[in-house]
Design a binder for these strands. Structure first.
Length: 288
DNA sequence: AAACAGGAACCAC
DNA sequence: GTGGTTCCTGTT
């Protein structure tokens, strides 16, 4: 891998198993949008555009320092996906899913943003999740100007903790408004320390997350997988349930059984397997 | 325009 | 601990 810098654009060459469309469209992140040239996203306090021409990754509006301190980890570039794919592909079903979703990477996102985003995701589709997050950011986040356009950062803990339920409902959160408000309050008061969760094991970290209103087993697994580096997490939603029933067993009655099955079959790689399966299920509209 | 989609909370048992 | 019902809003 080779990294160059040219007038506020990073150029990264020599990446393998990297495909932005599959990375951004597999349900793990909600603030990346295709604008005709590339994927534009608000990440932390920056707006960047990601362009991929098949050989070089361009990150517009980033420096070499940003790459080392942030983007390298964000795109999970330290992880050898070739090795993971080889192991998963021993399973014939996974072999198909991996082939289909090649280039997926599990992003290492901000735990706070991920926590709130996946509380919103409960009982919701991706399109609506995205629009709610945009409205929240517009209303409670800081404005950023980039290339003469306005963008809004994801709201801070303080901003959402002091928001009223009514204001949150106005953003389309529905009954999740009180969950968001109360969870923000817990984080603000330090009753849950998100950054500490990185350093404790999967099961313990999950226990902590489950104390947040609006966080159940599936949402907790998403937060663990997408922002806390717990790659054994296997979030089970209806899509995963459908595809597992279609591809593996006809009768997996309850979500818990599916999680168990994945734990046994994929072990510490369960989270990677989940992403390939999710993408495969959505694109193939399995069970619909 | 009624039905549907989508996880967690909550209340029985 | 399991099973059934309810919560909200955009889409069909």
């Amino acid at each position: 891998m080779q990294v160059k810098y040219n007038s506020n654009v990073l150029e990264v060459e020599g990446l393998t198993n990297f495909h932005p469309e599959h990375i951004f469209e597999c349900g793990q992140a909600f603030r990346w949008n295709w604008d005709g040239k590339g994927y534009v996203g608000v990440v932390a306090d920056k707006v960047v555009r990601i362009i991929w021409d098949g050989a070089t990754l361009y990150i517009e509006n980033a420096t070499l320092k940003d790459f080392d301190s942030f983007w390298y980890n964000y795109f999970d570039l330290q992880t050898n996906y070739g090795e993971i794919i080889d192991i998963l592909s021993k399973d014939p079903v996974m072999k198909k899913a991996v082939k289909y979703g090649w280039g997926i990477r599990i992003l290492n996102q901000d735990p706070w943003e991920t926590l709130i985003s996946f509380i919103i995701s409960a009982n919701n589709g991706i399109k609506r999740i995205k629009s709610i997050i945009e409205r929240l950011s517009y209303k409670f986040g800081q404005k950023i100007i980039w290339q003469d356009q306005e963008y809004y950062m994801f709201p801070s803990v303080e901003a959402l903790a002091s928001a009223t339920e009514e204001e949150l409902r106005e953003c389309g959160c529905g009954y999740r408004a009180s969950y968001i408000q109360r969870t923000a309050q817990l984080v603000k008061e330090g009753q849950i320390n998100l950054n500490d969760l990185r350093n404790i094991d999967y099961a313990k970290a999950k226990e902590h997350l489950l104390k947040c209103p609006g966080v159940g087993p599936k949402v907790a697994d998403c937060i663990l997988l997408f922002s806390l580096g717990k790659r054994q997490a296997f979030p089970v939603d209806v899509w995963i349930k459908r595809i597992m029933e279609t591809l593996y067993y006809d009768e997996m009655k309850v979500f818990k059984d599916i999680r168990k099955f994945a734990e046994n079959k994929f072990g510490l790689l369960a989270g990677y397997a989940q992403q390939y399966l999710f993408y495969y299920a959505r694109e193939k509209k399995i069970g619909k």
